[in-house]
Write a protein that binds this DNA or RNA. Structure first.
Lengths: 254, 254
DNA sequence: CGAAACTTTGAAAAGGATCAAACTTTGTGG
DNA sequence: CCACAAAGTTTGATCCTTTTCAAAGTTTCG
């Protein structure tokens, strides 16, 4: 039975159990949430800066990014999301979006209206706390991103992003042996890391040249995980995956 | 009656009311929280990366910063906090600190143990939601910081930080006419913005030379607010101050 | 098959970093 | 209250990482 064949809310329950304790009561309650499933293409605008959405969007399949645009038109990507994530969970209590939410690839979205979600949190404090915790993990990832952009070289930034992607994809079973379909263009990598597309390209060349990774036809394989981790100063602590058993046998630390 | 003469928890109540609706019931409940007040000097380590604190720290007076250190020893400051803020509120549900929490100046701290705080959130959903919202605003500020560091020039970054500081200080009544005691060293400004201290210094010189600001003896005065805002591409939307009436008559947008 | 999106490469320019050293302010103890 | 040390600021000169510009390949997809 694949994720698609189970109810769309199973994804959510499994996800919340990753970092929080949920009993049968809460799982049952979650399953009673109204949810609207929708498949969309890449580049689909889920929400725009300034809007006040009435629901959250659980990503069941595909990739999403969040963008901010500077007043002189430059784009900064704030974060990427993989299946199981809820990119705009903060709108549950921070009504106005301060960034765009856009699909990076084709995606299956599960919309969860705010009102029953809030009611559920009030009735089941454990669910409220689990969702709160998810927004806190999102913030922790964002903080790590600041340090990467502010204080590491272009090479380290790219390496760090690749490590993060591989790790997060592995957790949801989308990376076998640190090998996965790369959802991002070099343009997007640059906009995420504050780099020009030319720089990104040269760094990827370089990493390939040193046999650390290979990347062709949109498939990325990490050959020398330790080295990539060292280059990117990657320590998965900030992802707060603790309780989560890796889907495949990826070693934890070094 | 000054803030110090009222109970330390009044600061918290007024703060939460800024973005959330709280009735008398909730205010009463908040006042019943156990709170330990403590005065400390500058450079005091409130929490260290990797620690699991048992309480949150409400800043009653002074300034706090949060730092991350890269594995090659560079420091990135993630955010600054002004009176009324709770820099480590996330530890209520994300137990392990992924950064240091340090006082920038002498400070008065109010420690709030996690346990009664969590109990209060369960008993009064509105309080839980208000605190959740505070962590979401903190995350929104962090996101804006990413865009500033990733996609704007050194000059714009410094201007943006000054605008943000002036705005946040004004809200808590610590900036008269966009004039305030500057709590940060140029070293700290640099570490916050991913710049070298030399760069920061030259940019401050330049802003002074253009009569946009003046800064001497640790007192910063913003003479040309519109220009500084334009240079820093500053739009206070991301601070989510909406409901808050400014303490002095600072105009909103331009 | 062709257009659009994406990647690659080369060359030149620029924005900040780094290094080094002097100057100023702040805080402390005598 | 002064002297001194430590912390913080300022300035000049040089270097280097990354950007920008330009143009040619390569995929992808309708």
């Amino acid at each position: 039975m694949t994720a698609d064949e189970r109810g769309p809310l199973d994804v959510l329950i499994r996800r919340l159990k990753r970092a929080s304790r949920l009993d049968e009561t809460e799982a049952e309650a979650l399953l009673s949430l109204p949810a609207i499933v929708r498949d969309v293409g890449s580049g689909y605008m889920i929400g725009r800066s300034g809007e006040r959405p009435g629901q959250c969007c659980l990503l069941a399949d595909g990739f999403i990014r969040r963008d901010q645009t500077t007043s002189d038109g430059k784009r900064q990507i704030l974060s990427f999301y993989v299946p199981g994530d809820i990119p705009d969970l903060q709108t549950i209590h921070l009504k106005t979006l301060d960034h765009d939410v856009v699909t990076v690839t084709e995606a299956r979205l599960v919309f969860l209206p705010h009102e029953p979600l809030v009611a559920l949190c009030r009735a089941h404090p454990l669910i409220g706390e689990a969702l709160w915790r998810e927004t806190l993990i999102d913030a922790a990832v964002t903080r790590a991103w600041i340090t990467t952009i502010g204080r590491t070289s272009a090479r380290a930034r790219v390496a760090h992003l690749l490590c993060e992607l591989a790790t997060r994809l592995d957790v949801v079973g989308l990376a076998e042996e640190r090998r996965f379909r790369m959802p991002l263009t070099q343009h997007e990598i640059g906009d995420a890391l504050g780099l020009s597309i030319v720089s990104v390209n040269r760094i990827l060349q370089d990493l390939r040249g040193h046999k650390v990774i290979s990347l062709s036809k949109r498939v990325l394989a990490i050959h020398d995980w330790d080295k990539l981790q060292r280059i990117g100063q990657f320590d998965p602590l900030y992802l707060h995956l603790h309780g989560a058993p890796p889907a495949s046998g990826m070693p934890e630390g070094s």
